[in-house]
Design a protein around this nucleic acid. Structure first.
Length: 674
DNA sequence: GTGGATGAG
DNA sequence: CGCTCATCCAC
């Protein structure tokens, strides 16, 4: 019986994916004074405690809060015709995601159905509308993102000393190791000093831990789970549809193997299984903290959550699914083997996809236990060196750290729109670009509230025509303090021109606009801002425009609207600060399509004081200009349709009278101004 | 820099 | 399921 580490202070396997360290295979490591007195053991800390906390039916919960409906109201969140979230009251009616709205309503006639917020036409902000239409609206998850950040912020506030890593919009990992150690030393002060007679000095084992009272700390996953009920029906084909967490994890449809399940190589035998360890004490303390934090989230923000507490991220995540909703589960080291062994490994994070399938097919197995017989060498020879992590995961080992990625974790921001009916007109393309730009502007500026110098270094436009995989085009995105919709749309518009052009026969079925390479601008900000502090002089004459013959100024024969300034946009593009710098330029609009900068004529721009008025004027400018484009499109359309046969798909093309876009709201706003 | 692959929900 | 979002990496 080799009780692992005798020299825990010497990480013999530094870093790389070397042989699995005995230290980590051991589920019951000897914990010494050095362990509890050390500060930076990181993932090697035998007292490490991690939790995963996720919000129950998050989108649905968000909507319930927003709409202030009673907690027991069955509610689903809709995205077009699909359900993307179903709250627990609604699940009682057998409603699941993937159901259609109609089916859901059939199951529960009084179901509350909420469609996600969408950007409508040119609205600057998403909203909840009655007339959602995938052809004219774009989904916005912004509200959920904000709520998600509130929760994360509350966790950080409630759990000082913890690392909090937002793992997704509704999940966060929390590393409790540090505060737990502090509390441990506080509650058991005798741990703080190595006894004079300790045989190995600071490397001596700690005295036996006190018993742990798990009451009120959550559900403790049993070390010896009750045996699975006798197989009622051999047809294991029956998928557990949408039970979600209701199923007993310890009996997941019986392993396919007929031979006795392999067991983990542990030192736990018989009665010793339930012996309390110091790690158990640590788990219980973390559970207390987690509980309080969750209570606070419920109290302050009214979000119900479920949490898992275990020795690492991977296990915490698994444990969290043990009881839902509003559950908290604790996975003791001693319970790991029997919890893991019957687990279908394809449920494990990162094994849910192609890789997991490869494993399943390679060995014709389905559970973690089945895979335990595969040696590391075997695994690596078939799946590469990298598969060590799989080998370890199967044994409850996960070295990944919980790191607070603060706010700058997000490396990219993408707004996309799939078009059920492919668009065929340039104006539509620019319209969507503007919508996507609005979303990006909102999100970037939002992120900047927390990290002012956030800077997406490149902007990418992706468009897919009909079938083809789709192509993308990118360009550097200059740092600007003031990131406006216009600015992004102008950049996007330019990319569009390069990517799609103005061909009237295009059929674009998806448009994506993204920021990538998001980071913090260090000295960059000052440099640029300072550099352009004095008015940018170089304004090109209109003649310079001709310098770029390649640019698809295709239908250029058409006259320009009077309002369009003579200024060249390339100027704008090369010197993005121009707009935000020069005072009067505040009142200008750059068309993403023709790349012209438009300003109100002197008469109308006289006294614009507030920011709102400014917006109003700009909106007016934009609409007016868009209308001009609209007219041009009409002309062009007639030209093409008269000369050429129309493609079948484009039925509405020539026949239907074109509907003039109207934004009464925006226009009204514009004209009701004094 | 482009574009594909993968994966989570 | 269909859609949206994010990351990574080969070329």
């Amino acid at each position: 019986m080799d009780l692992g580490p005798t020299s825990p202070t010497k990480p013999s396997w530094k870093g790389k994916s070397r042989a699995v360290n005995q230290e980590f295979v051991d589920l019951n490591p000897t914990i010494t004074y050095r362990h509890i007195l050390s500060q930076n053991l990181g993932v090697k800390d035998p007292l490490r405690v991690v939790a995963l906390c996720d919000s129950d039916a998050f989108y649905a919960a968000c909507e319930m809060n927003r709409l202030q409906v009673p907690p027991d109201t069955p509610l689903v969140v809709l995205q077009w015709e699909s359900l993307i979230a179903v709250n627990y009251p609604a699940r009682k009616y057998g409603i699941s995601r993937m159901d259609k709205k109609k089916d859901a309503l059939k199951r529960c006639p009084h179901l509350k159905v909420v469609h996600v917020a969408t950007y409508k036409e040119g609205e600057a902000e998403p909203g909840y509308w009655d007339d959602v239409d995938t052809n004219t609206h774009k989904v916005s998850l912004d509200y959920y993102r904000r709520e998600s950040m509130k929760i994360a912020a509350l966790f950080r506030e409630m759990l000082p000393g913890c690392e909090v890593e937002k793992a997704s919009i509704d999940e966060a990992f929390i590393d409790f190791t540090k505060p737990v150690r502090d509390i441990l030393l506080e509650r058991y002060p005798y741990l703080a000093t190595v006894p004079a007679d300790a045989p190995y000095g600071i490397d001596s084992p700690l005295p036996p831990p006190p018993p742990v009272d798990w009451e009120g700390k959550g559900t403790v996953v049993p070390v010896h789970p009750p045996p699975p009920p006798p197989d009622p029906k051999p047809s294991s084909k029956e998928e557990d549809s949408e039970r979600e967490g209701e199923t007993e994890p310890q009996s997941p449809g019986a392993s396919t193997s007929t031979t006795p399940l392999p067991t983990l190589d542990t030192d736990l035998h018989g009665e010793e299984d339930d012996t309390t360890t110091w790690h158990d004490v640590a788990l219980s303390i973390a559970s207390e903290l987690m509980f309080k934090a969750r209570q606070e989230v419920l109290k302050q923000l009214n979000y119900s959550t479920s949490a898992g507490v275990a020795r690492n991220k991977f296990l915490a995540k698994l444990a969290a699914s043990y009881r839902k909703p509003d559950g908290q589960s604790i996975l003791r080291n001693a319970a790991i083997p029997n919890y893991l062994i019957p687990m279908p490994f394809q449920k494990i994070r990162f094994l849910g996809g192609k890789l997991g399938k490869a494993f399943a097919e390679q060995y014709d197995v389905s559970t973690v236990g089945d895979l335990l017989t595969i040696s590391l060498d075997e695994m690596q020879s078939k799946f590469g060196e990298e598969s060590v992590w799989v080998y370890e995961i199967l044994r409850g080992i996960d070295r990944s750290e919980v790191k607070d990625k603060g706010t700058t974790l997000t490396k990219s921001m993408l707004a996309s729109k799939n078009l059920p009916k492919p668009i065929t007109k340039a104006s539509e393309g620019y319209h969507w670009i503007r919508v996507l730009a609005a979303e990006l502007a909102l999100r970037l500026n939002d992120a900047r509230k927390l990290s002012p110098n956030l800077w997406p270094k490149t902007i990418v436009l992706h468009a897919r025509k009909g079938y083809e995989p789709g192509r993308s085009k990118q360009a550097p995105f200059p740092f600007t303090k003031d990131v406006t919709v216009d600015f992004i749309a102008a950049a996007g518009g330019k990319l569009w021109k390069e990517l799609v052009g103005n061909t009237s026969t295009m059929k674009v079925s998806s448009v994506q606009l993204a920021f990538t390479g998001i980071g913090v601008s260090e000295a960059g900000q000052q440099t640029i801002e300072g550099f352009f502090g004095s008015k940018p002089p170089s304004k090109r004459s209109r003649d310079d425009v001709k310098e770029h013959p390649g640019e698809a100024r295709a239908q250029e024969g058409i006259d320009r609207p009077a309002e369009v300034s003579k200024e060249d946009v390339d100027n704008q593009m090369e010197d993005p600060q121009a707009r935000s710098r020069s005072g009067t330029d505040e009142l200008s609009y750059t068309c993403p399509r023709c790349q012209k900068t438009i300003r109100p004529n002197a008469a109308s721009s006289t006294t614009v004081q507030t920011e709102e008025e400014c917006e109003t004027v700009l909106t007016g400018l934009r609409l007016e200009h868009d209308d001009w484009h609209f007219a041009q499109d009409l002309v062009r359309e007639e030209a093409t349709s008269s000369g050429k046969r129309i493609i079948p798909g484009q039925t509405t093309q020539g026949s239907k009278p074109k509907k003039r876009r109207k934004e009464t709201k925006g226009i009204e706003k514009f004209f009701t101004r004094k």
